[in-house]
Design a protein around this nucleic acid. Structure first.
Lengths: 191, 191
DNA sequence: GGAATTCATTCACCTAGGTTAACTTCGGTG
DNA sequence: CACCGAAGTTAACCTAGGTGAATGAATTCC
């Protein structure tokens, strides 16, 4: 599974044989089953993730209802806010499919960059890129109706619609599954 | 008007005659007329404010519509995000009444604290207190319906309802003035 | 003092999404 | 094969807020 991580890095830079060896030797790869919980509300996150295979959701519980805040697919980096801020998490993180994840820990990464300083610009590129791909991106969509938000997703991440059950998407959009059904029907019949 | 600033400080600590003189000698107090714009979208904020008298709103414009994000009354500190992050502002800041404001600038404050280090714990107290009173507090109320949000405000800041026009409050709640009228009517008749 | 704004209220009508419940489809399991 | 449970769809009815227009009240302006 390490080749998937190499593939991820090679999106950013062409890698030498040696680079590849370093990446493979230092990778921590873990597999999780569908339904596995990576982080619970109240816990401190101990690591961050890169999705190599599978699909993950983050959600919180309000008034007894789960509300999805984000989904992560292949090559999405998932850095829990709890990990950055070293605070108890407000969110749950759960695998929606069987997953293969690369594990990231700050101290480890820093040590690695000391040993292999030529990876530093690569890491900078990746983390710059990541800043556009935030956990909890609600802000951008605050002003959209659920229908508009749905259309945005269909435009920007059409694959997501094929991958996750509709009731999970409905929860993300802030509506009931029945309403998402209705929206989809509306869109079919009016176009 | 400087006595209002002294009054503000004395909420946090009992002040000696000398303290009072220092505060008064170093205060920057400015008056603004109703309707004055303190900061426009795109500008860099050059200072922060403490409301000594009057009422201020911050808002942004989306699809040609103004949306209020916050109101500030007497003794509310107003630190533009643009000032903290040194970024162009996403918000407008406008006086809803004639205002008397105390002006704060970081370098100036820091110089002052060097000369008068006994003010340092006082400043710490004030800025700790401020962190609970953030600009853009939308997050807390994201899950409330406009009606619930209105009830929250009536409970927590009832004075605000007397001070600002209802269409300004409606904009804050994310609804039209007619709908706020309707909500108020509903609340009167059902209780 | 009268006219013109501005703001709040009310009404009729519309639309989106919630609620409840019935029905279907499908995949898994005995 | 029959049954079950989960997920999606549909429908009837409800509610909140939007829209546009009319009315009233209060302020400001000449």
């Amino acid at each position: 599974m390490k080749h998937l991580l190499v593939k991820f890095f090679s999106q950013y830079k062409s890698l030498s044989e040696e680079d590849i060896k370093i990446i493979e030797d230092n990778a921590i790869i873990r597999k999780y089953q569908k339904g596995a919980i990576l982080l619970k509300e109240g816990q401190y996150a101990k690591e961050s993730y890169l999705v190599l295979k599978g699909c993950i959701r983050s959600y919180y519980i309000i008034d007894g209802e789960e509300k999805n805040t984000d989904f992560f697919l292949e090559y999405d980096p998932l850095v829990p806010i709890s990990y950055i801020k070293n605070q108890p998490s407000k969110y749950f993180i759960e695998c929606l499919e069987d997953c293969v994840l690369s594990i990231g820990k700050t101290e480890r990464t820093e040590k690695l960059l000391l040993s292999y300083p030529n990876f530093i610009p690569l890491y900078r590129k990746i983390s710059d890129d990541y800043s556009t791909n935030q956990l909890i991106s609600t802000d951008k969509y605050r002003n959209l109706s659920p229908e508009e938000h749905y259309l945005e997703i269909r435009k920007l991440k059409p694959e997501l619609l094929e991958r996750i059950p509709q009731y999970q998407l409905a929860s993300y959009l802030g509506i009931k599954p029945q309403s998402l059904s209705r929206i989809r029907k509306r869109l079919i019949h009016q176009k």
